[in-house]
């Protein structure tokens, strides 16, 4: 399976990449929403995108909205991974088309359990 990690923090991308690689995911990275859209043009639809909310250039919520307009990526599961913890933001992310929501800080188990919820357990 293939995943795209979108976060402006290199350390956070590294942590998520490590967790996903242990699950045998091939992992791509982007530092903000615009870069993620560019990366997706190269990779085509991936199985999973982990998307931060607050990033320069294009925010995660705008990336989710944009990606959900594109039918090529309709099979891609999107999980927000963010420090935003208000109910309104969870609702907004789901309405925009995110499938799951993880609040930072998280543990490895949190990611594994959410992948289970999305039907994306270790291949």
């Amino acid at each position: 399976m293939r995943a795209l990690v979108v976060d402006d923090s290199r350390a956070m991308r590294l942590i998520l990449k490590q967790i996903l690689r242990e699950l045998q995911f091939e992992v791509f990275e982007a530092a903000h929403g615009l870069e993620a859209l560019e990366r997706l043009k190269q990779t085509g639809c991936v199985d999973l995108a982990l998307v931060d909310w607050n990033m320069p250039e294009m925010k995660g919520i705008d990336l989710v909205t944009e990606v959900r307009k594109l039918s090529d990526y309709s099979a891609m599961k999107i999980m927000m991974v963010t420090t935003e913890t208000e109910m309104e933001q969870v609702q907004r992310a789901l309405s925009a088309g995110a499938d799951e929501y993880v609040m930072k800080p998280f543990t490895k188990d949190v990611i594994l359990e959410k992948l289970g919820v999305l039907g994306l357990s270790a291949p």
Partner: peptide
């Protein structure tokens, strides 16, 4: 806690059955 609701709870259930 935030850590507890992060664990295994589908986000749509959080929205539907919890309040902050």
């Amino acid at each position: 806690s935030q850590l507890e609701i992060n664990r295994g709870l589908p986000a749509r259930y959080l929205v539907k059955y919890f309040e902050k």
